[in-house]
Amino acid sequence: MLKKLFALILIGGLGLIFFQLYNQRSRREGLTKTASYYTEKGPAETRSANIVTSVVVTYRGLDTLGEVTILFAAASIIGFFLKRSEKGSKDKTIRNQSSELLQTGSMLLVPLIFLLGIYVFVNGHLSPGGGFQGGAIIASGTVLAFLANPSFEGGRTLIHILESLSGMFYVGIGVAGIFLAAGFLDNRIFPTGNVGSFISAGAIPVIYSIIGLKVGAELSAILYSLRDTKEQQ
């Protein structure tokens, strides 16, 4: 009880800090200097219709690379951690198979889900959405496959190859920016085209696709690792 009281007091204290934070915030009418730059110069420089995408993939591309890295690290950790501790028990857990209907239905749906994911990330520079959203949609396809068929094994190797290759390509494109354009992750290594057209914004769609694949692969890899965990009785 005392603990809860303390928790309340602490949250009250935090509330005070937040309130001060709220009070202090600047109530601006227009955009900040940085945001103005992005909105004014962004479409012209990157030729990406989606300004957020231009920020995410180009101006703040290093953030995104970092974020992919985090996902990668998380997947790796979960991978080696779960795998290693399972090493002792070779016997496969016997899982109940789900119904034929469900399995077949899901097999039908999964490619469609994947397709949707791909659509979302290749259009990232034009519309809301992008690599992460697309990747997450792809991973949801994997979830569906697992739910429908707990012993689903397809694409395991593909995932690992995708995981590595997409990452390497991402870095490679970034480095290419140094040589072919003005800096790391500069999108102007490819022709930039016109704002709004599908083939535009230089490397942005490529990078976003790679990110989409990468995220999809990482999340799927995590799902694989979790699926492989032995149940505790």
């Binding site: 180009t58 101006y59 953030d63 003005a182 800096g183 992750l185 999108n187």
Partner: peptide, 12 residues
């Protein structure tokens, strides 16, 4: 060292 070929305060 700037990235993304942009100007200093706006890119990383």
């Amino acid at each position: 060292i700037t990235t993304a070929g942009g100007k200093a305060p706006f890119v990383i």
